[in-house]
Design a binder for these strands. Structure first.
Length: 300
RNA sequence: GGCGCCGUGGCGGAGUGGCUACGCAGCGGCCUGCAAAGCCGUUUACUCCGGUUCGAAUCCGGACGGCGCCU
C-alpha cells in the first residue's frame, strides 16, 4: 500500500527542514505536489521565528509550510488544538491531490497529527491555577496521595514527584473525566489515519551537538535576544515561554540554553527510537540531493 | 634553593582508618488538551611509589605536579 502521507521526525538541529526541502524537489520532478505540515509545538507562534527555527522566506518559497508562525505569542496552545488543525490540513491536502510531509520534532504532536489519539478535555476555567496553588502549598507527594485515594489506578502510573501529571490528573478527576482507559493507548501503536511512511533523521551525536552549538550562535547573530524581549513585552503565554532559550536569553545565559537544547535533542532521540516502523536515515555528511535520495529510498 | 598549603570521576565539591557523599555534565528510559514541558534511572575517582595496619582516599615517608610566602 503506497504511503499517502510522509512524515519526518528527528532531533532539533538535525536538518529536518533542509531534508524536506530537498525531498520536495525530488518529488516535484516526479510530478507530485508536496506540502510540509509542521509538527512542532513552538513554531506555531508569531514573533518567535528565530528562536524556534521556523523556515525562512527562502525556504518557504521552495516548500510551502503549514501550521507555522500563525498564532499570537500571547495565546495558549495545546496538543488537542494542534491535532485538530493538523488533521484538517492533512485531509485537505490529500483531497487536493497534494502530498503532506509532516515534519517536526515534537513527538507527541507528530503522533497526534498522524493518528487519532483520544485526547482528554481541557481543564475547566481556573482549575489549573487552583491546583497549581494547591501544589505549591501542599507539595506533589500530598496531592499524589489524594489522587491515590480517589483514583488509585491513575496514581499508580504517575510518579509522586511528577507535579505536571498529578495536577492534570486531579483536574480531570474533578470534572469526572478521569476514567480508566477502555482501550489500549494508541500513542505507541503503528496506527495512522492514512497510509504513512515515517522517516527518522539522525546523525552522529557529536556532530549533532556541534550543530546545535552553531545554531544557537547563529540565532544570537540574527537577533533572537531582541525577538525574545519583544515577545516577553507582548505578554507571551505560558505555552510560548517554554520555548528553549526564552528565559535564558532574557538573562543572557546562553550556555544553559545550549545545554538544555542538547538535553531536549536526546529526549527526542529516545522518542524516535520507540516509534514503531520508523525508517532511520543518517543524513550526516551528505549533500541536499543525496539526503533527498536517501530519505526517498530508505529501505522499506 | 628553603618553608608552608594542596593534589578525589569530564567539571565542581564532601569525606580524616572499614560502610553508595552529593551536584552538574554525559548516557539510558517514561510520556495522551502545558510536551522545546514534566518525570525516572545511571557509568566514570581517590596523582604515583613504598610503608604502617586484619583493613588506607583517609596515617607515615618519598617522588611528581600546582599554589603561596621567603631567599
Amino acid at each position: 500500500m503506497p504511503a499517502r502521507v510522509l512524515a519526518h521526525f528527528g532531533p532539533t538541529g538535525v536538518g529536518k527542514t533542509d531534508g524536506a526541502i530537498a525531498l520536495a524537489d525530488l518529488m516535484r520532478a516526479r510530478g507530485e505536489r508536496p506540502v510540509a505540515v509542521s509538527a512542532d509545538a513552538l513554531q506555531v507562534y508569531v514573533g518567535l521565528e528565530i528562536l524556534t527555527g521556523v523556515p525562512d522566506r527562502a525556504q518557504r518559497a521552495r516548500l510551502e509550510h503549514r501550521l507555522i508562525s500563525f498564532l499570537p505569542v500571547d495565546a495558549r496552545f495545546s496538543v488537542a488544538e494542534y491535532a485538530h488543525l493538523a488533521h484538517a490540513e492533512i485531509d485537505g491536502l490529500l483531497a487536493d491531490g497534494a502530498t503532506p510531509i509532516v515534519v517536526g520534532g515534537t513527538g507527541l504532536y507528530l503522533r497526534a497529527a498522524l493518528a487519532e489519539l483520544t485526547l482528554r478535555p481541557p481543564p475547566p476555567q481556573g482549575a489549573r491555577e487552583r491546583w497549581e496553588a494547591e501544589l505549591r502549598a501542599r507539595g506533589p507527594e500530598q496531592l499524589h496521595a489524594q489522587l491515590a485515594g480517589e483514583a488509585p489506578w491513575a496514581a499508580e502510573s504517575i510518579d509522586p514527584r511528577d507535579r505536571h501529571r498529578i495536577v492534570r490528573a486531579l483536574e480531570l478527576l474533578e470534572q469526572g473525566a478521569l476514567e480508566a482507559p477502555t482501550e489500549p493507548s494508541r500513542l505507541w501503536t503503528r496506527d495512522t489515519r492514512h497510509p504513512t511512511r515515517l522517516v527518522g533523521l539522525v546523525r552522529d551525536r557529536d556532530e549533532l551537538y556541534a550543530r546545535i552549538e552553531r545554531r544557537v550562535d547563529a540565532m544570537i547573530a540574527a537577533g533572537v535576544e531582541d525577538e525574545v524581549r519583544r515577545a516577553h513585552a507582548a505578554g507571551a503565554s505560558p505555552t510560548a515561554r517554554v520555548a528553549l532559550g526564552f528565559d535564558e536569553l532574557l538573562t543572557g545565559d546562553v550556555e544553559t540554553m545550549k545545554r538544555r537544547t542538547r538535553n531536549y535533542a536526546r529526549r527526542q532521540l529516545t522518542w524516535m527510537r520507540k516509534l514503531p516502523d520508523v525508517e532511520l536515515v543518517d543524513i550526516g555528511g551528505r549533500s541536499p540531493p543525496q539526503v533527498a535520495a536517501a530519505i526517498d529510498s530508505a529501505p522499506a
